[in-house]
Design a binder for these strands. Structure first.
Lengths: 172, 172
DNA sequence: CGTGAAACATTAGCGGC
DNA sequence: GCCGCTAATGTTTCACG
């Protein structure tokens, strides 16, 4: 998985692209002291190996009216919930549908959840939730999270100020 | 701040670009049923108004050997710490250097911290920390976080599995 | 908003180190 | 193997209708 050989030039290319993903190949080539063709070959190799997962535009949440950022810890039912037994007793017999799997599938359908991790500690999941305001957040918690049959506990904290936020990973 | 007028086409352009930031203007124009020039004018307007903050390449943390993702809650000294009084009693007189300001400045210099928010709740700050392994994480906590004079408490949770992670914001 | 033309960028093939 | 040149193709950009 972590077995892609990267030399110093590859790492410089990655550092440049994760700061500005729209630089032309010519610009990048110039900055790493290469001519355009070998530079492009390296970039394509990084893309195909999956080291570069993709290119995106980053938008300003506030300018889109998304003024509330919350981190929500969620704890799930561990066994025997209604949803799970309902699925398990279905025509397919013993399906492998656990509470965690049901919850994960639901998370994928909620656009306000921009990140979700299974976590160590007291809570099972940590969600990052981006919404317009507290009214929207309240509706999300009531109608989606607490309404979900696998969820048994929810704890929210709100961002007062985001003073560091980067998609750039630390490249050794 | 949230006062930029966006019509349906602008929103479609944003939705496209936050999924694929390297599409050519021609491709985007085609998808929104516009010819290249007005499409480019819209994109430039979105860039200049700051709705589009920038373009980046997203890298694969695991393929770069960054196998450990932690969320760290940090609580700070509220008044009278050594660092603060030292600065306040400096030659410039009463500087406005609080514990929070000292901590924020330190966070900016730590590359393993990829996000940091001031938060509501028991803890003052939430950090997202991306490192190679537990040995690196341990060193970061001991040598950077706990070593910082303003920090009085640290609680860490670790990601077992990231099953949703997007930079794409929900556009209404 | 769309057209067209100039400037610029990407990319495949080939020869050289 | 990896580099750099060239030349064809495709893209961006801007003045103008």
């Amino acid at each position: 998985m972590a077995s892609i050989e990267l030399d110093a030039i590859d790492r410089r290319i990655l550092a440049i692209l994760q700061e500005n993903g729209r630089l032309s190949n010519q610009d990048i080539a110039e900055r790493v002291n290469l001519s355009p063709s070998p530079c492009l070959r390296r970039i394509r190799r990084l893309e195909e190996s999956g080291v570069i997962r993709g290119y995106v535009a980053l938008l300003d949440a506030q300018k889109l009216g998304l003024d509330l950022l919350a981190y929500v810890s969620v704890r799930l039912e561990k066994r025997g919930g209604l949803a799970v037994t309902a699925v398990r007793e279905g025509p397919a017999g013993r399906a492998g549908t656990t509470h965690a799997e049901l919850f994960r599938a639901a998370v994928q359908t909620w656009p306000e959840v921009v990140a979700c991790h299974a976590m160590t500690g007291d809570m099972d999941f940590l969600l990052r939730v981006q919404v317009e305001d507290m009214a929207h957040f309240s509706r999300f918690v009531q109608d989606q999270l607490l309404h979900h049959p696998s969820v048994i506990d929810v704890k929210s904290s709100f961002s007062l100020d985001t003073f560091k936020e980067t998609t750039a990973l630390p490249i050794r």
